[in-house]
């Protein structure tokens, strides 16, 4: 067991989480789960920012990930409002059933 891990392992973890997020985005059919997969990808990106911030010993990465969080919050508010409206009009959350432009 090594006593400490190189920074590249954090990046690998980030890549794995991002890949899982992409997989969830493609495979899942529930709108809410798809949306959560996007959040997973954003989280993975945040980990990359913080890791590079550590490597370069600068705080800028933290600020980028802070902005990502803020944008994610705004996105969640609007996105969930859209999901609520879709559910109200179509009565379903499955992406495949919400394929027509006009009801």
């Amino acid at each position: 067991m090594p006593t400490s891990v190189p920074t590249s392992w954090y990046l690998i973890l980030s890549a794995i989480l991002f890949g899982l997020g992409v997989a969830g985005f493609i495979f899942r059919r529930n709108i809410i789960t798809v949306f959560m997969s996007i959040e997973l990808m954003l989280n993975a990106v945040n980990l990359t920012f913080v890791t590079f911030s550590y490597t370069l010993k600068q705080v800028d990465g933290h600020i980028f990930s802070f902005f990502v969080m803020v944008v994610a919050a705004a996105e969640a508010a609007v996105g969930l409002a859209i999901i609520l409206t879709v559910f109200k009009n179509r009565g379903t959350l499955m992406i495949d059933d919400v394929s027509s432009m006009k009801y």
Partner: peptide, 24 residues
Amino acid sequence: LISFIIQAMLPRTEGVVFGAFKGG
């Protein structure tokens, strides 16, 4: 494959030490 590419592209860095970066 992605993990391999990241590991191969980055130079060997020293390990992460808790407390090495106090600027956050």
